[in-house]
């Protein structure tokens, strides 16, 4: 007599969690995109800094994605180096184009 074996497979929970996190990251990137597109008025004082602050979201999502795809070492490097790039751009603009101090 053949026995019918019912195999109820629940999806890989780790994969589901990773998928959810990636979707959240994508939504955050879209939010940042709107922020960047809607803040292009050069007459607004310190607008460059506002855009840099919004880009911080992209940096953090980048770190998260690197960790999720199995490159945690790259994620750590990105985490440490990202603020230095932001510092350089901000200070260059502050003392260059902004001509303050």
């Amino acid at each position: 007599m053949a026995t019918a074996e019912i195999s109820l497979t629940i999806g890989d929970p780790v994969g589901i969690i990773i998928g959810i996190l990636l979707i959240i990251g994508g939504i955050l990137i879209l939010c940042a995109t709107k922020g960047l597109i809607c803040n292009t008025d050069d007459d607004v004082k310190y607008n460059v800094f506002a855009r840099l602050e919004i880009l911080g979201i992209v940096d953090m999502v980048g770190v998260l994605v690197l960790i999720l795809v199995g490159q945690p070492a790259l994620g750590v490097v990105y985490f440490i180096l990202a603020p230095f790039a932001t510092h350089a751009i901000a200070k260059g603009h502050f003392r260059g184009e902004q001509e303050e101090q």
Binding site: Y46, F49, A50, L52, E53, I54, G56, I57, D59, M60, F79, A82, P83, T86, H87, A90, K91, F94, R95, Q101
Partner: peptide
């Protein structure tokens, strides 16, 4: 400060220990 989105450090004066910070 720079790692948290919404704030960045613009300038730093180590002698006077002053940070110039921008917030969104």
């Amino acid at each position: 400060i720079t790692l948290t989105p919404g704030t960045i450090t613009v300038d730093m004066d180590q002698d006077e220990r002053v940070l110039t910070v921008s917030a969104i």
